[in-house]
């Protein structure tokens, strides 16, 4: 059952949850982005297979653009690594004591993987190949 809160959006933002709260918000936002992206992806695959229509081709060129991929790749990699953190903390509840450290450690994993990948992607996009 939904919780009835008497807190508006901006009061909610002032809640000092720190790193884990940011991770929770980003997990939710990245989930919405991924669902939107993949649903359109499945539809686009279907229309490409069936009709090869202009709409499907247009959507293909949209998600082949490098800007789109930079955003989607961040969402996927963050959702994956943060999900792994949630699984680990849920499986061994004693570790929740170290959840701030876990969040920092998570960013230590995400930043190098994401940084190297977008470096290569942007380099390729600039050099046109």
């Amino acid at each position: 059952m939904a919780l009835k809160r008497n807190v508006n959006f901006f009061e909610g933002l002032r809640y000092k949850g720190g790193g884990p709260m940011l991770a929770w918000i980003l997990h939710r936002i990245s989930a919405l982005v991924i669902i939107f992206f993949i649903s359109l992806h499945v539809l686009s695959s279907f229309f490409t297979l069936e009709t090869g229509s202009d709409l499907a081709i247009a959507y293909n060129t949209l998600y082949e653009s490098v800007y789109f991929q930079v955003i989607v790749y961040f969402c996927v990699i963050f959702h994956a690594i943060n999900g792994l953190r949630i699984i680990i903390l849920d499986t061994w509840p004693k570790l929740v004591e170290y959840q701030h450290e876990a969040t920092w450690f998570e960013w230590l994993i995400i930043i190098p993987i994401y940084g190297i990948t977008i470096f290569v992607m942007i380099q390729r996009a600039i050099s046109g190949g």
């Binding site: 490409t48 293909n60 082949e64 390729r124």
Partner: peptide, 20 residues
């Protein structure tokens, strides 16, 4: 294979998936 292709083929290995 370039990096973008690698990432796309990681998740859904289908020829109708991404055209380029």
């Amino acid at each position: 294979m370039d990096l973008g292709t690698l990432m796309r083929w990681t998740f859904f290995q289908n020829p109708n998936h991404v055209l380029d």
